[in-house]
Each structure stands twice: as structure tokens, then as C-alpha cells.
Design a protein around this nucleic acid. Structure first.
Length: 255
DNA sequence: ATGGCTCCCCTTGGGAGA
């Protein structure tokens, strides 16, 4: 079973690319982030037309998450507890083919310091609380998506440039590390412990052409799913397509 | 320090992204 994540950066503006990628790579489950579309403009019919069921949590202009699958999707949650006034659409979760799939879009948090950075840290704490609950289930679980964190220096083309950036601040990296160490495995790093792997290239300054990338999109697996992990990769070529998102799709395969 | 790009919207400029 192939599970993927893709920050699409506007699902309607890039629907052609999304459909092409789905047709070429045929993932069984897909977590999408940054739909940038309200619920009523989610392109459900186009996805059903190529064999994908979908659930989504949209929002006008910003954020928005969705889960696509060739299997039946049983939604188990939308949103995280702990901050009822939070209106951002950043978390949706489902039970699919025996696996709990949490799809998340973690706040960017820039500029640092400031209220957006504080929101980012609070959001990670809320995710940590929910992750702790998920670990109490006797089920395979994956927390998948755009974490907006480069976990280590290996995950950015130029670490010194990002020391004041919310995506690489020590507070962000420490919170991510505590989350992983609480019972999860970073699937990409498990399979590729030494080499730089990027999932995002900025639109600016020919970042993709220079391979000036960041690793922001992660798969955290609990032990029950980690033991079934077979392979992982980045569909880097998709970032080179016309009208591409600034992220590339990332995937794992599970026994 | 700024701008370089690209999306979105009560659009022709600003907010947000990373």
C-alpha cells in the first residue's frame, strides 16, 4: 500500500497537475494540504472520476486539508482539541484499510518572534496531546503532512540561513523531536539516515534548479505501522512541472 | 535589508507562504 502526502498550494489552481500525478503514481492514500479553497469548491467530482474517494476540511483563501483514497474512508476527526477559537483548517483524520491516517498542516510560524510563532508552538502542543491518545490505540497509525519544520541541519540546503526562521528555530525543532521521541518513527530518515532529502523548493531565485531545498513534509509512524515500512521517496520531478506547487509529493510503501 | 515568485480574494494591491 502506497501512502503519499502533497502540499498542493491551491487545489483548484493546480488540479491538472494533481490529476496527472495521481494517474502516474497511483498512490492508495493521499494527504493534501493548503487546499486554499472553501468546502463547496473542493473538486470532488474530478477526483471521483479517476477513482479517488475524498474527505476534506476546507477554508477560504488559506490552509485546508484533505484525504484521498481508493479505499473506503471512515472519517474519525476534524480539527484538534485545546483551542476552540482556532478557525484554521489544519487537521483531518480517517480510518482507511485498517490504518489510522492523520493529515496535518502545521502552522508556518513566521515571523519569529511574534504571535504567529507562539501559535505554531501551541499547535504542536495540541498535536502532541492528540498523538499521545493515538498511541494508546492498538492500531497502526500515521501522522502525515506538512510539519513546516526542518528537523536537523541535514534537512536544509543552508542551515545558517535559517537560524531565525520559524521552520528551523530551536523551539520548533525541539518540539518536533519530543513528538518523535514520544513513540514515533520519521519514516524518511529511518530509510535514508545520512543523505539530504528535500520536499520543498522556493519559487524564488531558481531554488529548484539549484536544489536549494528543505525537508518539511514528514511521515511519523507508530510501532505497529513502522514494522511494516518497506520504502519511501520524493516525486521530485513533479516540482519541475509547469504551474507546480512549491512542494513535491512524498510517499511511503507499507506491507 | 530588500527583493526575487505565486497563490488567493468583496482583486488591479495586499496578505501569506517558507
Amino acid at each position: 500500500m502506497k501512502i503519499a502526502t502533497y502540499n498542493i498550494n491551491g487545489i483548484n489552481g493546480r488540479l491538472h497537475n494533481l490529476l496527472r500525478w495521481l494517474a502516474e503514481e497511483k498512490p492508495d492514500i493521499v494527504c493534501l494540504q493548503e487546499l486554499k479553497a472553501p468546502d463547496n469548491l473542493f473538486p470532488e467530482q474530478a477526483l471521483l472520476g479517476i477513482g479517488y474517494n475524498a474527505i476534506w476540511l476546507g477554508q477560504k483563501s488559506w490552509n485546508g486539508v484533505a484525504i484521498l483514497s481508493k479505499y473506503e474512508i471512515k472519517e474519525t476527526r476534524r480539527g484538534l482539541d485545546g483551542e476552540p477559537e482556532d478557525t484554521h483548517s489544519r487537521y483531518i483524520e480517517a480510518f482507511i484499510n485498517g490504518v489510522v491516517i492523520g493529515c496535518l498542516y502545521l502552522p508556518n510560524g513566521n515571523p519569529w518572534p511574534g504571535p504567529k510563532f507562539e501559535y505554531k508552538l501551541r499547535w504542536i502542543a495540541r498535536l502532541q496531546a492528540h498523538a499521545n491518545k493515538l498511541l494508546s490505540f492498538d492500531l497502526p497509525v500515521a501522522l502525515i503532512g506538512d510539519y513546516n519544520v526542518m528537523p536537523t541541519e541535514l534537512d536544509t540546503y543552508k542551515p545558517e540561513k535559517y537560524l531565525s526562521n520559524a521552520l528551523f528555530r530551536p523551539e520548533s525543532r525541539e518540539a518536533f523531536k519530543i513528538l518523535v521521541d514520544s513513540g514515533w518513527t520519521d519514516a524518511i530518515r529511518k530509510l535514508y539516515p545520512e543523505e539530504p532529502i528535500y520536499t520543498f523548493w522556493d519559487y524564488l531565485r531558481n531554488a529548484y534548479g539549484r536544489n536549494a531545498g528543505l525537508r518539511l513534509d514528514h511521515f511519523l509512524l507508530n510501532d505497529k505501522l513502522n514494522s511494516r515500512l518497506l520504502s519511501a521517496g520524493v516525486d521530485k520531478q513533479v516540482r519541475g512541472w509547469v504551474h507546480s506547487s512549491d512542494h513535491a509529493p512524498v510517499w511511503i510503501t507499507i506491507e
